[in-house]
């Protein structure tokens, strides 16, 4: 379990992370969202033990991370652009990681070789960005970490490889209880990957949600009432996040149990009634609008 408690981190007087707390359970895939400059990278680097928090604690498995090899040897941090030693090849990087990470598995490395079809003797600097990204995944997963922290990992991967990596991650989570923390500024990219999502803005955590709950819990409803007054009557009965009127059709975003909502509307026997699933993006936009934030600049 990753526990971040009241962590703050400033750079030259500017707070990048501001008393932030976060819990990620074992075998969870947690998506960290936020616009550029929201503090995602700083948080991840603090979590990876690269930065020392100014305040607060970062613990994994109830042990502090910073300067603690015992924790860090089962943790891999993948930066937003992959970095390898100059002149290194996949083979030489593998040899290096093998000597550093006790959990390194040659077997896993070879298995993954069938997924990532890269020339292991070729210089990594000659690889394309996407290939470098693949190499980074390959090396990281070969270390059989317990925690994988990834900063904007999907960039530059082709759709096939994206699928592959997602499957690999699901597999690792299912088989080895890998905990994944993934950051992105694009919700759509990680929508189908994460089970938890948190949105950061200005160094703080705005919203934190379990995605399954969210999806089960929030609904978009298009309705045409027989009488204008029905709308007002409904508003008192349901938790309405958002409402707008398009001609005679009312659009509602409503929170709550699907059946109960459906029944509440049918009492008024509307001309039209559609209950639609929401995209994750829509949910957040409405959630955040509700919390007083304009979601547009935060989520793209």
């Amino acid at each position: 379990m990753i526990e971040i408690r009241g962590v703050s981190k400033s750079f030259q007087g500017e707070k990048a992370v501001d008393s932030l707390s976060l819990t990620v359970h074992k075998a969870a895939i947690y998506g960290l969202l936020g616009s550029n400059g929201a503090g995602k990278t700083t948080l991840l680097k603090t979590l990876a033990g690269i930065y020392r928090p100014d305040e607060g604690t970062v613990r994994i498995g109830n042990k502090p991370v910073f300067e603690n090899p015992e924790v860090k040897q089962s943790l891999i941090f993948m930066p937003d652009s992959p970095y390898f030693f100059p002149q290194a090849s996949v083979n030489s990087m593998a040899a290096y990681y093998r000597s550093i990470y006790p959990g390194w598995s040659d077997k896993r490395f070879e298995e993954l070789g069938t997924v990532f079809r890269l020339d292991t003797a070729r210089k990594l600097s000659r690889f394309s960005k996407g290939m470098q990204r693949q190499a980074a995944f390959w090396l990281a997963l070969s270390c059989t970490p317990d925690v994988l922290i990834m900063d904007e990992p999907i960039d530059g991967l082709d759709p096939v490889m994206r699928r592959q990596i997602k499957n690999l991650l699901f597999q690792e989570v299912a088989e080895r209880e890998l905990t994944v923390l993934i950051s992105s500024h694009n919700l759509r990219e990680i929508e189908d990957l994460c089970d938890h999502v948190g949105i950061m803005h200005g160094g703080r955590m705005l919203v934190e949600k379990d995605l399954d709950d969210l999806k089960a819990d929030t609904h978009k409803i298009q309705v045409a009432f027989r009488d204008e007054r029905h709308a007002a009557a409904l508003a008192a009965k349901l938790q309405i996040l958002h409402q707008e009127q398009r001609g005679s059709v009312n659009l509602y975003i409503v929170k709550g149990d699907r059946e109960r909502i459906s029944q509440a509307f049918h009492v008024y026997e509307p001309y039209v009634f559609d209950l639609l699933p929401l995209t994750l993006e829509e949910i957040f936009i409405y959630e955040m609008g509700d919390a007083g934030y304009d979601a547009q600049p935060i989520l793209l």
Partner: peptide
């Protein structure tokens, strides 16, 4: 499930052969 792994000897930390080998290769 374990979060840390035993078996790292002291010299593996201090005179880590991987680090030294990497340095020699690089510099």
């Amino acid at each position: 499930m374990k979060w840390g792994m035993p078996g790292m000897t002291h010299s593996r930390y201090f005179f880590n052969s991987g680090v030294i080998r990497q340095n020699v290769r690089q510099h």
